[in-house]
Computed example of a mutant assay.
Amino acid sequence: MRKIVVRGDGFALAELAKGDQEYLAEHGDRAFDVDRDGRAMPYEAPVHRLAITDETGTELLGRVMWHPVIYGPSYGCVAWNFGRELLPRVRGKGIGTAVLKALVRYLFDTTDVDRIEGSTDVTNVRAQKSLEKAGFTREGVLRGAQLRGGKRRDMISYSLLRTDK
């Protein structure tokens, strides 16, 4: 059984169990997976992950990930950049927005970071609407920010500040 970290209405955020990453890889549609280009990353940020499950922590529905982004030489210049992945069978049911709200609450309650940011493909209108419903502010276009299918893809950036709540 997974240890539940945050409970929401109809879902929970829980520690990933053995085999969860593999299950998600097998059952996801990889719609927005980025290409690996073989070059080493210049900086490896620690990536934190939680499973998105049903309320009991039993059924795996997806995952959320976040890592620090540093914009300057002090802690006040650190932001959390997050991503989320829902399995195709649970998309379009409003859970993504609820998960974002719960993740924001969790990060602001458990860390001192004042900015949470995320981005989505310019064609992913459903994710854009979800981010806006969760209280995020659209900041602009990140030109060519991801490489997918051998092509550079534009992303739309969003953020939420602690003071926005």
Rank of each mutant, 00 (worst) to 15 (best):
1 M>G: 06
6 V>T: 09
6 V>C: 04
7 R>Q: 09
8 G>I: 07
9 D>C: 05
10 G>S: 02
13 L>Y: 06
14 A>F: 06
15 E>T: 00
16 L>E: 12
16 L>P: 03
17 A>T: 10
17 A>H: 11
18 K>F: 09
21 Q>I: 13
22 E>S: 13
23 Y>I: 06
24 L>N: 04
24 L>Y: 04
25 A>Q: 14
27 H>C: 07
28 G>T: 00
29 D>E: 12
30 R>Q: 14
31 A>G: 11
32 F>C: 07
33 D>H: 11
34 V>T: 10
35 D>I: 13
35 D>Y: 14
35 D>R: 11
37 D>K: 11
38 G>L: 13
38 G>F: 14
39 R>F: 07
41 M>E: 15
42 P>T: 07
42 P>Q: 08
42 P>L: 08
43 Y>R: 09
43 Y>P: 00
49 R>G: 03
50 L>G: 06
50 L>C: 07
55 E>A: 10
56 T>R: 02
58 T>I: 12
58 T>K: 11
61 L>D: 08
61 L>A: 10
62 G>S: 09
63 R>C: 09
64 V>G: 02
65 M>K: 14
66 W>H: 05
66 W>G: 05
66 W>R: 04
67 H>I: 02
67 H>G: 09
68 P>A: 10
69 V>R: 11
69 V>F: 13
70 I>L: 12
75 Y>Q: 08
80 W>H: 06
80 W>T: 01
81 N>R: 15
81 N>W: 15
82 F>W: 05
83 G>E: 04
84 R>D: 09
85 E>Y: 02
86 L>T: 05
87 L>H: 03
89 R>C: 08
89 R>F: 02
91 R>V: 01
91 R>F: 00
92 G>I: 10
93 K>Q: 10
93 K>T: 03
94 G>Q: 02
95 I>W: 03
95 I>Q: 03
96 G>K: 03
96 G>V: 03
97 T>M: 07
98 A>H: 07
99 V>L: 07
101 K>Q: 15
102 A>K: 00
105 R>K: 15
109 D>G: 05
110 T>I: 13
110 T>G: 11
112 D>M: 12
112 D>L: 13
115 R>Q: 04
115 R>C: 06
115 R>N: 03
115 R>H: 01
119 S>W: 12
120 T>V: 14
121 D>M: 12
122 V>L: 04
123 T>P: 00
124 N>C: 14
124 N>E: 08
125 V>N: 03
125 V>R: 08
127 A>V: 10
127 A>T: 02
127 A>I: 00
128 Q>N: 12
129 K>A: 00
131 L>E: 02
134 A>F: 14
137 T>K: 08
138 R>G: 04
138 R>M: 00
140 G>Q: 01
142 L>N: 10
143 R>K: 12
155 M>F: 12
156 I>M: 05
156 I>G: 00
159 S>G: 09
161 L>N: 07
162 R>W: 02
162 R>T: 02
162 R>Q: 03
